[in-house]
Design a protein around this nucleic acid. Sequence first.
DNA 1: GGGCGAACTGTTACCGGTAACTTTCTTGTG
DNA 2: CACAAGAAAGTTACCGGTAACAGTTCGCCC
Lengths: 325, 325
Amino acid sequence: MVRKDRVPRAPTIYDVARVAEVSHQTVSRYLSGASPLRPASRERVERAIQELGYRPSLTARMLARGESRTVVALTGELLEVGTVQLVEGVRRAARAAGYLLDVMTYDADDLERTLTTIGRQDVAGVLAIADTDQLREAVGRLSPDLLVTVTEDTPAAHTVEAHHAVARHLIELGHDRVTYVAGPRDWCSARTRLRAFEEAFTGLDSERLFAAGWSAASGHEAGRRLRNPTAVVCANDQIALGVTRALAERGRHVPADVSVVGYDDMPEAAYFSPPLTTVRQDFALHGAHAFRRVLERLEPDVPREPLPAVEDHLIVRGSTAVRRA
Amino acid sequence: MVRKDRVPRAPTIYDVARVAEVSHQTVSRYLSGASPLRPASRERVERAIQELGYRPSLTARMLARGESRTVVALTGELLEVGTVQLVEGVRRAARAAGYLLDVMTYDADDLERTLTTIGRQDVAGVLAIADTDQLREAVGRLSPDLLVTVTEDTPAAHTVEAHHAVARHLIELGHDRVTYVAGPRDWCSARTRLRAFEEAFTGLDSERLFAAGWSAASGHEAGRRLRNPTAVVCANDQIALGVTRALAERGRHVPADVSVVGYDDMPEAAYFSPPLTTVRQDFALHGAHAFRRVLERLEPDVPREPLPAVEDHLIVRGSTAVRRA
DNA sequence: GGGCGAACTGTTACCGGTAACTTTCTTGTG
DNA sequence: CACAAGAAAGTTACCGGTAACAGTTCGCCC
């Protein structure tokens, strides 16, 4: 009779138990460290595991424990560097907490299907990152699962503070006609930043424009609609880049004729021509905070130690200068 | 006696079976569609599922089927947009094939631990994306699992062809001292591109430099070591940006004094000052190809229909110009 | 109307772990 | 040295599905 060993399956806890001449439960206990083993058995188990190259099956463990240690991060297309870094921060935090982060991206027309997929998974929680109105709305119809959104709804203190810093900087340079190029209307974070701008720039002669997206292309398009400001503040660095380009095409130079400020401090910002004055965000920290909020809902008894407060710093580079008479 | 319903568990197929008054196996069959149900039972099952809001547990399914439909994409930090887009392409392809893509990133000093984590997962395969020598070496010690690497080892035809296009373009413009700024030495793809460059530029007076990373900062640093070329070809757009900046700091302007060419055509490239001449890659397609290779090893009987060939296109913008006498 | 496949449906075992409970050592103590 | 208590190990059931096989039911034909 031929053994039916077509696929040499991975060793299981039972295999280990047999080799170590203990019960499978003892092996399980060894693995979990829940209760101590007698040195003799402990050693045999260790040797057996080594010998067989045994690795526990996460799947079986999850099924048995009835808990899922997976969190889904739901985000739009990962084209923006900021988002990517943020997701990265979330992942780190998740892993540190023993969770697996499953990043799912959706296209606008794909959202429904993506959400359905999530519904089918055994996920502990969902973290909506790219928070557009569309996503929020769609997500509301999802089963009453856990769900936390990253980007804050109300202008967080640090965002407002950063915009105040930008305002002070521009006023110091003598600017008095400032246009804000906001991110897409249907993004919560775009509106948050816009509100922060408006709060910081009250009293000044300011105007606002909306970009269609977060990309340089959108910024470029918005830049063409610019009237005649002395300074432009943008919702992110890419938009600032596009605006700068549009300005150049009209023969207006940055910073000689117009000052431009970005937001995010993407890694390339310091190397733009001219290097971009912008606000640095610690995305990784933002991500950690976001995951923390998920964790707090997932594990109510998680220690409440607060994470370090996020701070956004104005980085002055070459794209802002004294207003020319 | 109090029912111990602390956590209202999610409904299982047994719950569905009870409500629908069929056996759990019938429900399972309904779900898998393996064999037809009598209209009457089918309808009862459907109603029961609806009513209970039942969702199958992927975990249990995986355990029972003994197969994992998860592929891990292993990559370095997701800071480069190109990589992100590539991962995105992989994900799409994976999802289309019914797989879940688990993106894991590693830090240089974290690699060991990351690989260990993978070993503990039930993963069908691993796709190494950011392929550095370090990763390859470390991965070699991993259990003899599936592993495919994205970036090709030998200069793929399209890479060589693209560099030829760059060469033709620069020669046409009269350039004769061309420096190549390569990506980091220990990246396979950096070497691949370098080799493609050398093949395309044989005969010309060319020099090479290595950047320490793929970032604009690395490019900037490398740019300072530039001697006096008439044109610079870079391993990616970020490096090109940094090089351009370094050149500007030395008072050499692009493209008037020096021409600069990038690679990848990142979304921002068209908005740089000057807009960057570069090579466009279809990252999503590259990703799809990569996943395809994984799939072929995972499911030997996967239809072998070839994916559309990748093509890299030279995009001429404002950073290259006729060599000034 | 009985016989017979084919089409459904039910039963039971199993995937690889964990949890709860029971049994079998070890100890320490009187 | 017997015995109880505690420590270590073993047993059994269960997590939520699937697979294989056994049992019904149904339609069709003679």
